[in-house]
């Protein structure tokens, strides 16, 4: 249990130390600025609701990395899959405007399909042609960004704007505030419980189903898995498709739960941050949730100190956290292996 918390502790320490140094270097009182940011983020209702709101796409993008990573595959294509999912959601919800929950459901499924297709394509390239998924997903990010931009401007944009027409309220995710008094007025919508349920479901799938076992086996020992009769094609393409679908859902969150329309550059790098989230969670779907909350809190804290220091500071700290998590990964792995050895005698 303590070992599982080690990555988070390292991340928090990195943020605190590096953040204090940079804030200090800018001539500000790090304790005061940091204290105010912490208070505004974690001890006010608004701050907390924003943290949960921002964690929603991070949970989905973290899962989008964690699932393929279980099979030993790096999905760096979250940004592109997110854009594809967002555009699909906006188009479908727009066509079915007036159909209420049916439209919402269809739009969510379309987002998952679009993102999933993008992920599956990279999986197919990997399995049949040996194209490394890191390269193909990075290329797919650029191809999908340009492709979605073209589709948007050629067919889908509201005349005179650079986004799709604003969607009517009935097709959007339901605001949680309309059901729960405690979060009234916040931006939280049904996309948050959707993300939480998916995290729990995937935890169960990866650790309690045959497919999950096969996925983990092919990640730990690909050749042994093949010899045990596990079909590599199903693992590679399936996990990349599922990863892509999850990132696509993050796109649906932006369109149906935040913006009400699709536009280019919708995400603030959530697709890439998903990698950091999955690393901190050590690819455990359930642990993705607290990891996403931590990154969301960092981003919200950065926003709340924007009057003192540039909010771009958060971007620097995020990069540093990934480096620290990456650099200490082998050490944490070794520690957990040793503990397993001690436990198993």
């Amino acid at each position: 249990m303590l070992l599982a918390l080690l990555p988070a502790a390292l991340a928090v320490t990195t943020v605190a130390v590096l953040g204090a140094i940079i804030i200090g270097a800018l001539g500000k009182d790090a304790l005061e600025v940091g204290g105010q940011a912490l208070h505004a983020t974690l001890l006010t209702g608004y701050g907390l609701s924003q943290v949960f709101f921002k964690s929603t796409p991070l949970i989905l993008c973290g899962l989008a990395v964690a699932v393929p990573l279980t099979a030993g595959l790096f999905n760096v294509g979250g940004e592109g899959q997110l854009a594809a999912g967002g555009l699909a959601a906006a188009l479908v919800a727009g066509w079915l405007a007036g159909a209420g929950a049916v439209a919402t459901t269809a739009a969510v499924m379309a987002a998952a399909l679009a993102g999933g297709a993008a992920g599956a394509g990279c999986g197919v390239l990997r399995h049949t042609r040996g194209v490394h998924e890191v390269i193909s997903t990075i290329m797919a990010n650029f191809i999908l960004a340009a492709g979605c931009g073209w589709l948007l401007h050629a067919f889908a944009a509201e005349p005179g704007t650079s986004h799709t027409p604003e969607l009517p309220a009935d097709v959007l995710f339901t605001r949680l505030g309309s059901v729960l008094d405690a979060v009234q007025g916040s931006l939280l919508s049904t996309s948050l419980p959707l993300a939480l349920v998916l995290a729990a479901l995937l935890q169960w799938v990866l650790w309690r189903t045959v497919w999950g076992f096969e996925l983990r086996a092919s990640g730990l020992a690909p050749r042994a898995a093949v010899h045990a009769g596990i079909r590599a094609a199903a693992m590679v393409v399936g996990s990349m498709a599922l990863g892509g679908a999850l990132a696509g859902l993050a796109g649906a969150h932006f369109v149906l739960g935040a913006r009400r329309f699709f536009e280019e550059g919708m995400s603030g790098g959530e697709g890439f941050l998903g990698i950091a989230v999955a690393l901190m969670a050590r690819s455990q779907p359930a642990a993705v949730v607290p990891a996403a909350l931590l990154f969301a809190a960092l981003s919200q804290a950065g926003l709340s100190m924007a009057s003192h220091v540039p909010r771009e500071l958060v971007l620097v700290l995020q990069g540093a956290v990934v480096l620290v998590l990456g650099g200490t990964g082998p050490l944490v792995d070794a520690l957990s292996r040793r503990r397993a050895e001690v436990r198993d005698g």
């Binding site: 790096f74 990698i275 771009e312 990069g319 480096l323």
Partner: peptide
Amino acid sequence: LCLHARANHIIVAVGLNLLAVGTGRFALK
């Protein structure tokens, strides 16, 4: 990070790319 901490080369690169984008924007501001 890769040679001495034995970190995964791809993770390190993702971190460096994020850090570079952040540093660029932070420096401009």
